[in-house]
Simulated assay, not measured.
Amino acid sequence: MSNKKVFEEFSKLVQKKSSELAQEVTEKQNEKYPEMQSISNDLLTMREELVKLFGESFVLGDEERRKNFKAWGKKAGTQCATLNASLEEMLNEFPEYRTIIGELLKTHAKEHELSIDGFYDMLNILETDIGDVTCYFSLPFVDYQADQLKNSKEALFELSVPVIPISDEIAVLPLVGDIDTSRAKLMLEKALEKSAKLKVNYFILDLSGVPIIDTYVAQIIFQLIDSLELIGVKAKVTGMTPDIVQTVVNLGIDFQKIQTYSSLKQAINTIHGRETSKTV
């Protein structure tokens, strides 16, 4: 029997046994990673599709094989990431295909007295396929997780600038921790956006949880206050600690035009006409 015929028959054999081989991989993975049993049914379908691709690859050209594995890797990599499977668990799975299909290949080659060159060619196809699958699966998996991490960071970052309405006319932005360039820009953006949306008359920036500010942050505060005034919102600053006051003085930053108060309570009372403003 010619090598081409042996390749074709082996291709059909692997595809025919795709469900059985996929189940064998599933059992091995569940044994190694019991936590994966909850998503076994979802993974079983993808594994069966992959086994069929391995089978088809023995009668396809290099370009078509890579195209098929790339399409599978994109779909399966993304899906496995959404199932919360770990990349380590999934990558440790691919050698199982090499072992299981390799044993089937060895038996098939012996039965058909395949030449050493022919066996090497078939084994080389399988090894190449394993490498391609590993690559094409990993890329979308990593991209998906990177996007999720980015979205989580952005959501957490926005939570670091919480504009809180405390009445129909007053909104407060209580800041805690260091204010870097990115956070200062976000503070300006969110303060204007929320003030306009809430239609408040007063905006209070509370710095009692901020250890220190620099010239750039001070400039952003000035810019914020000027911008708020342009949309008809009166801004006040509260909670300036002694360290911040000392920094303001040392840097020569002029806060005289900004209404500042020692506490949030004092600023609110002033708005209600119960106290007078105190500036730095």
Results as ranks from 00 to 15, higher is better:
Glu96Arg: 09
Leu44Val: 00
Ala22Arg: 02
Pro140Trp: 11
Ile101Thr: 07
Asp62Ile: 13
Leu159Gln: 01
Ser160Val: 06
Lys150Glu: 13
Gly209Met: 12
Lys67Phe: 12
Leu50Glu: 10
Glu31Arg: 10
Glu89Asn: 08
Ala22Ile: 08
Thr82Ala: 09
Ala196Phe: 03
Glu127Val: 11
Gly77Leu: 12
Glu63Ser: 11
Lys106Pro: 00
Tyr202Gln: 02
Lys16Tyr: 06
Asn269Arg: 13
Phe54Pro: 02
Arg47Leu: 06
Glu275Gly: 00
Asn92Ile: 03
Ala218Met: 12
Phe54Cys: 05
Phe10Arg: 12
Lys234Asn: 11
Ile100Ser: 03
Phe119Leu: 14
Val59Tyr: 08
Asp129Thr: 14
Leu104Thr: 06
Val248Cys: 02
Glu56Arg: 11
Gln246Tyr: 11
Ser57Phe: 02
Gln219Leu: 03
Phe203Ser: 02
Lys234Gln: 10
Lys234Ser: 13
Ser19Cys: 03
Lys4Cys: 02
Ala235Met: 05
Tyr97Phe: 15
Lys236Phe: 12
Leu53Gln: 03
Trp72His: 04
Ala218Thr: 08
Arg98Gln: 13
Pro211Cys: 10
Lys257Pro: 00
Phe137Asp: 01
Lys28Phe: 05
Val200Thr: 14
Lys28Leu: 15
Lys70Met: 14
Thr134Ala: 14
Pro140Met: 04
Ile253Asn: 08
Ser195Ile: 08
Arg98Val: 02
Asp168His: 07
Pro162Glu: 02
Ala81Val: 08
Leu126Tyr: 04
Ser11Glu: 14
Tyr120Val: 12
Lys236Gly: 02
Asn250Arg: 14
Ser277Ile: 14
Phe137Tyr: 15
Leu43Trp: 04
Leu230Val: 14
Lys28Ile: 13
Cys135Pro: 00
Lys17Trp: 01
Leu186Ile: 04
Leu104Met: 12
Ala146Gly: 00
Leu205Glu: 01
Lys4Trp: 03
Asp180Ala: 12
Val280Leu: 15
Val142Ala: 07
Val14Asp: 01
Lys5Glu: 14
Lys17Asn: 15
Cys135Asp: 09
Gln29Asn: 02
Ser227Thr: 09
Met240Asn: 00
Leu224Lys: 08
Gln246Asn: 12
Thr45Trp: 03
Gly209Ile: 13
Leu149Thr: 13
Met46Gln: 08
Pro162Gly: 05
Ser160Gln: 08
Phe10Thr: 06
Ile213Ala: 07
Asp180Glu: 09
Val142Ile: 15
Thr107Leu: 15
Ser263Val: 01
Leu123Thr: 13
Lys28Arg: 15
Lys28Pro: 04
Gly209Cys: 10
Met187Ala: 03
Phe119Asp: 05
Val59Leu: 06
Gly209Tyr: 09
Ile170Ser: 05
Ser57His: 04
Asn84Ser: 11
Glu24Phe: 02
Lys234Tyr: 05
Ala81Asn: 06
Asp178His: 09
Ser277Asn: 10
Glu96Phe: 09
Ala76Cys: 08
Tyr202Ile: 03
Glu193His: 12
Leu205Tyr: 00
Ile100Gln: 10
Asp121Thr: 10
Asp214Leu: 11
Ile39Asn: 04
Leu228Gly: 06
Lys265Ser: 10
Arg183Ser: 06
Ile100His: 08
Met46Lys: 07
